[in-house]
Each structure stands twice: as structure tokens, then as C-alpha cells.
Simulated scan of single mutants.
Amino acid sequence: MSRIDDLIAELCPEGVEHRGLGDFGEFVRGNGLQKSDLRDSGFGAIHYGQVHTIYGVWASETRSFVTEELARKLRKARTGDLVIATTSEDDAAVAKAVAWVGEGEVAVSGDAYIYRHSLEPKYVAYFFQSEQFQSQKTRHITGTKVRRISGDSLAKIRIPAPPLAVQREIVTVLDTFTKLEAELEAELEAELEARRRQYKYYRDALLTFGERTDADASKQASKHKTNDDG
């Protein structure tokens, strides 16, 4: 943290200003992409549902694609843009965001916004996970069963905006923690899987008994009768 503190002291000695996200860019709604349109190859695409389920803070490759023909009709995120899922049944998941840091453009579905901005992409994506962002967005969420937030509302949310050098240093630190968390999760999952196999082995071993035949039963009964006669 001392490196970040030093940069803040040097580059913004009067403190870090907070401004609305709309001051740094614009929110463009995705369009026309349905889940049924997704393919295993073609033009890269991000469906808003995938932002909730398979993407983390940032992505350099897409998991799904669309045909080149469909891609020509769709709005696209450029390198550095955020893709924001704007609907959910859960308030906590509304406005979950992934920074697109891959090469070229990717098609984006409706129920998602593209945030095209001048900030450090990962910095903004990490901010979207912060308590500071969550507490601000709550007052802008609307809807009953399906909860949503508009681009105009997102533009009003204030973000701390230190110089880019500070933003990048913060990203370096947070990326380190994210990588460590992923490694720990993988280790824990491997350990859990080993425990599952161990449990299955002992469960089956403890609950498996050799099946006794009628001949075995007769032999055992005869043995008991002989012992009783003795």
C-alpha cells in the first residue's frame, strides 16, 4: 500500500476527487443477442447472463460466439470497455460488470450496457464490486420480480478518480489477491475432491458385506447346533 500512498501524495496531494461515471464515458445498451444465438465458434460474444455466471472481473477471451452475419447487426464492446449486466432477480447481482481486455470487439446482448470510458478498465470493474458502488446503486434499482438499473442511473454513481498511474497500481495489487484467491479455491477444490473419493471408498467398504448363500447359512446353523450339543 505504501507505493499507492506515495503515488497519491505525489500526484494528487489535495486528495482524490470523486465524479460521476458519466463524466468519464457513456453507457450504450447492447441489442438483439439471444442465448439461442450463441455458438462454439465465430465472432466473440458476451450474453448478459454469462456476466452473472461465468465471467470474473475481466476477460480476454469469450466463452461463446455468434455468426459473422449476426455480429454485423449487434452493438459491440471494444477493448477496455465494461460489459454490465443490468438485470437480475437479486439486487446484489444487478450491475455486475466484466472488463473486456481482449483484442478486437465483442458483441453484447440486450439487458447489458457497454460502458465506454477513459478510466483504467480493471479499476472500474473492481470498483463495481466495492461496497462504495453497491451502496450507491441500491437507490437506483427499480422493478419488482426482475430488478434493473438504467444507464442514466449508472452515470450518476460517483467513482474515486485518482490519476491513471494510481489506478493501475491499485489494479496490480487487486489482481494479485484475485490470483491468490483463485489458486486457493483450486487447492481447496482438489482437497475436497480427494475427501469425496476417500469418503466414497470408506462408505462402500463399510457398507459392503459378502452375500451369504443358503449353504453358508446351513453350515453356520450346523456349527451352532454342534456347539450346543457339546
Rank of each mutant, 00 (worst) to 15 (best):
A161F: 06
L192C: 13
N31V: 00
R3P: 05
A107H: 02
L174W: 07
E131H: 09
D229I: 13
K225H: 13
I149F: 08
E89A: 07
F43D: 00
R168A: 13
E14H: 06
S88D: 10
Y202N: 08
T226G: 02
G80M: 03
G30V: 08
R72A: 15
Q167T: 07
R197F: 02
V57Y: 03
K156R: 14
I157D: 02
G230M: 03
K76G: 02
Y115D: 05
E185P: 02
D228W: 11
H224E: 15
G15H: 13
C12L: 09
Q198L: 08
E189W: 00
E183A: 12
E181G: 10
R168F: 00
R29C: 00
E89G: 11
K96T: 15
M1L: 11
I46S: 04
A45T: 01
V28D: 00
E131G: 10
Y199F: 12
A221V: 12
E187I: 06
K96H: 09
S109L: 00
K122D: 04
D37H: 09
N31Y: 01
K73L: 05
Y55D: 09
K156C: 02
K219E: 08
R78C: 05
T176H: 10
D228C: 04
I54C: 08
R29P: 02
R168C: 11
R197M: 04
T176M: 06
A9S: 15
R39D: 01
V108W: 11
I141E: 03
D6T: 12
Q129W: 02
E193P: 08
D90I: 12
R212C: 01
K219R: 15
S130Y: 02
A190E: 08
K156V: 06
T208Q: 07
L33P: 01
A215C: 02
Y115C: 05
H52P: 06
E183M: 07
V94S: 06
S118H: 09
R197A: 13
S2Q: 13
D91M: 14
E120G: 05
E26T: 13
E17F: 02
D90F: 01
D175P: 12
T53N: 11
V166R: 04
V146S: 07
G230T: 08
G15C: 06
G104C: 14
D6M: 12
L11Q: 12
I170G: 03
E181P: 00
L174G: 00
C12S: 14
I46C: 08
E189L: 12
G25F: 01
L184I: 14
K137H: 05
T86N: 13
S109F: 00
G22I: 00
S150D: 13
K179D: 08
A112K: 10
G110P: 03
A59H: 07
A59N: 09
I84N: 00
Y202D: 10
R148E: 01
P121K: 08
T144R: 01
